[in-house]
Amino acid sequence: MVKEIERAGIPVVHACSIVPISLTVGSNRILPTIAIPHPFGDPEMGLAEEKGLRRALVEKGLKALATGIEGQTVFS
């Protein structure tokens, strides 16, 4: 899905926890996330802290979208 969206000329950041798969399938902008069942959260944190973590990840994703890249890049 990521590649097809990118092929259409729309920059896309792939947020996922298993980065090697993303690299294998050919995503270009890759944002590593927390875990498979909760990529944008961590149930062990307090709600406020978890929200802060989520917000930070989204901010990182936006930054990736605004960054020019040559090839596959992991924004960790």
């Binding site: 792939h14 069942p37 989204v58």
Partner: peptide
Amino acid sequence: SFGREIAQRLLADGVQAVILTST
């Protein structure tokens, strides 16, 4: 095929960037 169809709709709606989340 999902990706292609979604991309078409995004283009039609003037979307310029995407965050795609996977588990």
